[in-house]
């Protein structure tokens, strides 16, 4: 294993330990995501027929909102505790910090999504523990994390940072949200891989493009 990946994994492990021990972010985010789902239930009052149409949208709005909260915490914690300076002084490349924080956010969002599935399944009675859906969720979440890590590091230094992150983040990740919702539709109707292959390819392309662009531009965000 090269030094680069060792640094990435060290940063990732630090974030995991922090979250596992304190559970400071995951608890409020989970409760928040659950509330979003409940509010949508009353906003749409989905009947069994309607539920297949609105369920993907509700699910991904909840995931996106929960994700943006998690992303904002990702760098806010570092900034408030003063550890961001330590991270920047550490003898590792900026790319290592980017990929470490990215993997942290990615895993965090995946855990939130997995924990949200059982209540969602119970409330809306739709099949979600399908391999198709899990793959879609992973691909989409990687896209969220790839873009979100840059904007999280950026917005943490701005005034009104809680508002700046979604304002920056949502327009850019809109293609992933479209893709995730569109791919989840056929899955809920028991569709096959071929129904969602186009969207999966599209989201993988998005992930690839923004992993490159974001990792290249991230170093300029962290400069002091």
């Amino acid at each position: 294993m090269t030094n680069f990946w060792r640094a990435v994994l060290t940063i990732l492990w630090k974030d995991i330990l922090l979250e596992v021990r304190a559970k400071e972010t995951i608890t409020p985010v989970l409760v928040f995501a659950f509330l979003v789902v409940i509010i949508f239930n009353f906003a749409f009052e989905p009947t069994p027929l309607l539920v297949v149409t609105v369920a993907p949208g509700i699910l991904w709005v909840a995931f996106t909102f929960a994700g943006v909260l998690g992303l904002s915490r990702s760098f806010a914690v570092e900034k408030d505790k003063g550890s961001l300076d330590g991270l920047m002084l550490a003898p590792v490349g900026r790319e290592a910090i980017y990929f470490g924080k990215l993997l942290g956010s990615f895993l965090f969002m995946l855990v939130v999504e997995l924990l949200m599935l059982p209540p969602f399944l119970v409330l809306f009675n739709v099949p979600l523990f399908e391999p198709e859906f899990l793959i879609t969720a992973m691909v989409a979440t990687l896209g969220f994390a790839a873009v979100g890590t840059v904007f999280s590091a950026m917005s943490v230094n701005t005034r009104a940072r809680e508002i700046m992150l979604p304002v920056l983040f949502f327009p850019i990740v809109l293609p992933v949200i479209i893709g995730a919702v569109a791919a989840s539709g056929p899955i809920l109707e028991e569709g096959s891989w071929s129904d969602i292959a186009g969207w999966l390819q599209f989201m993988v392309a998005f992930d690839a493009i923004f992993l490159v662009v974001s990792s290249l531009t991230f170093q300029f965000v962290l400069e002091e």
Partner: peptide, 11 residues
């Protein structure tokens, strides 16, 4: 300047 340059590219 730096932040907006990054957004200008990503956008």
């Amino acid at each position: 300047a730096r932040y907006s340059a990054v957004l200008g590219i990503i956008g």
